[in-house]
């Protein structure tokens, strides 16, 4: 989860296609203000050309119980992005490219051509929502016009495999990119990129703190975790995070600026309560240590989600001290996004 979108939107009509493995996870609490979007693969061991047993792709839930399938079938979704000006306009990065909806997910149009494949990340520029940025296996591309046209915008990046992007919310035209060989930064809308932190392996996720825009965190494949206190200009290694595991994702608690979580393959779930200085293992209660993704819920203080590989979506209301399965039994949840929409 890179950067929560906090614009207010109208509601979407809810057609329930599934429900929680639990009862109400938050009885007595106020109705959530954010919709949780989940990118999910439900067919295990899916092979291209194979049979899709269950729906896979983009789902959403407002009450964290009833789920709605939003996208077309897509076993390998990567990311979702929202236009803060228009609740019906969303962008969906998946194996086939970028799809765009103008009607809240009722219909989608693929807006990329043959030369864009496997976009690993997608970010809508909060300063100019017509600008859509995508991280690609062969670089970084920008659409300046809401997805109608695309251009590569990665001058200065040598080994171009890019997994993660953050559009700086405090300063326009400034982005950070997690690539195969380190973290790159641009302050001129991608016209030139500079390597601000080399790494020995791919940077898998970047996170800008929701509490302090100058604070950034990064996790890598085999080069541990990194932190920046100056807007991503300089970085230091987080000594307490091991580097023997592949780290996948980061999440920041929306209510407590000192709370962070990360996860990875074999790494389980690690949580920091002191702003990233020290980390505790909070994997107990999950069925495996192969955790694909973690996410924090802006509407439920202390709530953490985790996705053990092809197990289910698990939830913890004490930031990882205890876990329960919530949704999508047997599935892999690739990514979470929260989007604030108007009351139903």
């Amino acid at each position: 989860m890179k950067n929560p979108v906090l614009m207010c939107h109208l509601a979407w009509p809810l057609a329930v296609v599934g429900s929680s493995l639990l009862g109400a996870p938050s009885s007595g609490r106020a109705e959530p203000q954010h919709t949780l979007y989940l990118l999910v693969q439900q067919t295990k061991d899916y092979v291209i050309g194979g049979r899709r047993i269950s729906d896979s792709g983009l789902f959403r839930t407002r009450d964290r119980k009833a789920i709605q399938f939003v996208s077309h079938q897509q076993p390998r979704p990567f990311q979702i992005g929202f236009d803060p000006r228009d609740p019906n306009r969303m962008y969906y990065a998946n194996l086939n490219g970028i799809s765009r909806t103008l009607d809240g997910g009722k219909s989608w149009k693929r807006v990329t051509g043959w030369n864009i494949t496997e976009p690993k990340d997608l970010q809508v520029d909060p300063h100019n929502p017509d600008r859509i940025w995508i991280a690609l296996p062969d670089g970084i591309a920008l659409s300046p016009d809401g997805g109608d046209t695309w251009q590569y915008q990665d001058a200065g990046i040598k080994t171009r495999f890019t997994e993660a992007l953050v559009v700086e919310r405090a300063f326009p035209d400034t982005l950070l990119a997690g690539t195969e060989r380190g973290i790159y930064r641009t302050s001129n809308a991608g016209n030139t990129w500079s390597l601000v932190q080399p790494t020995t392996a791919t940077v898998h996720d970047l996170l800008q703190s929701p509490h302090d825009s100058m604070r950034y965190f990064a996790v890598t494949q085999s080069d541990g975790a990194w932190a920046s206190q100056d807007g991503g200009i300089s970085w230091s290694r987080i000594a307490d995070v091991p580097d023997q595991f592949t780290l996948h994702h980061l999440a920041a608690d929306f209510h407590d600026p000192n709370r962070l979580a990360l996860c990875g393959w074999g790494a389980g779930v690690l949580v920091s309560e002191d702003g990233g200085k020290t980390w505790q293992d909070r994997t107990a209660g999950l069925p495996s240590r192969e955790i694909w993704s973690v996410g924090s819920d802006p509407d439920f203080p202390g709530r953490l989600y985790a996705s053990p590989f092809e197990e289910a979506l698990y939830v913890s209301d004490d930031f990882g001290k205890s876990w329960q399965p919530l949704l999508f039994e047997g599935a892999l949840v690739w990514e979470y996004q929260f989007h604030k929409e108007g009351p139903r």
Binding site: I48, G49, Q73, Q74, L95, N96, G97, W114, T117, E118
Partner: peptide, 17 residues
């Protein structure tokens, strides 16, 4: 209505396109 994957290899793309 059926959305086929484009895939990730050249043979996939030759068949797809």
């Amino acid at each position: 209505t059926y959305v086929p994957l484009r895939g990730d290899t050249e043979n996939h793309w030759a068949m797809y396109y």
